[in-house]
Simulated scan of single mutants.
Amino acid sequence: MSRTAAVWMTAVGIVLIALNLRLGISSASALLEQLRAQLGFGPFVASLVPALPTLCFAAVGATGAMLARRVGTERAVLLALAALSVGLAVRAVPRTGALLGGTLLGAAGLALCNVLLPAVVRAHFPARVALLTGVYTTTMALGSAVAAAAAVPVADLVGEASPGLAVWAVPAVLALVVWGLRPGSWRATARGADGGKVSARSAGRTRFGLLVTAFFALQSLNSYAVIGWLPTVLSDHGMSSDRAGVMLGLALVVGVPSTFVLMPLTRTAARLRWAFVLVGAALMAGYLGLLCAPLALPVLWAVLTGFGLGAFPLVLAIIGASGRSAQETAALSTFSQSTGYLLASVGPFGVGLLRSATGGWALPLAVLLALAALQLFVGLRLTLTRTEVSA
Rank of each mutant, 00 (worst) to 15 (best):
V233G: 03
G24T: 14
G61M: 08
G359R: 14
A30Q: 00
G352R: 06
Q337E: 06
P364R: 09
S2M: 11
R243P: 00
T334M: 08
A111R: 02
G64T: 05
R182A: 03
D156M: 12
V279P: 05
T189C: 15
M247S: 07
A58E: 05
T138M: 15
A46P: 03
P126F: 05
T259G: 04
G306W: 03
L67R: 11
L278R: 01
W274L: 11
A51T: 07
R187V: 11
D236N: 01
F349R: 05
V71L: 14
T54W: 05
T10A: 14
I318M: 10
F216G: 05
R355I: 02
R128L: 14
P43V: 09
V315C: 00
V303A: 15
G61N: 05
L371N: 09
L234G: 06
L218P: 10
V378N: 02
A83E: 00
A127C: 03
G64P: 01
L354A: 12
A269P: 05
L265G: 03
A172M: 02
S325T: 13
L132D: 00
I14E: 03
G286Q: 10
A108N: 07
S29K: 06
C113D: 03
R70T: 14
I17D: 02
L304P: 11
S185L: 11
L295H: 10
R271E: 10
P126M: 09
V233W: 09
W8P: 01
T73K: 07
A51P: 04
R191P: 02
F57A: 04
Q337V: 03
V303P: 03
A51G: 12
E328P: 01
T73D: 09
M1Q: 08
A46Q: 08
V45A: 06
A200L: 01
P294M: 10
V129Q: 01
R91S: 03
L157M: 10
R207A: 15
V351F: 15
T4E: 15
G306Q: 09
G192S: 11
V254W: 06
V86Q: 00
V115W: 00
S27I: 03
V7E: 12
A141V: 05
G195W: 08
C113S: 07
A119M: 07
W179T: 09
A302S: 15
T4M: 12
L248W: 12
N222C: 12
F41L: 04
H124S: 14
G97L: 14
T334P: 01
S27A: 13
A11M: 08
A68N: 12
S2L: 11
P171E: 14
S325R: 08
P313D: 10
F57W: 13
L365E: 08
L157E: 05
F307N: 00
G109F: 09
L309Y: 06
H237R: 03
G24H: 06
L384R: 15
F216H: 07
A285P: 08
L23Y: 00
N20L: 13
G64K: 01
L272R: 06
R3W: 14
R267T: 13
A203D: 00
A18S: 08
A108F: 13
G289R: 12
L316R: 04
A76T: 08
S26G: 07
L176E: 08
G228Q: 06
A58L: 02
L248V: 13
A127I: 04
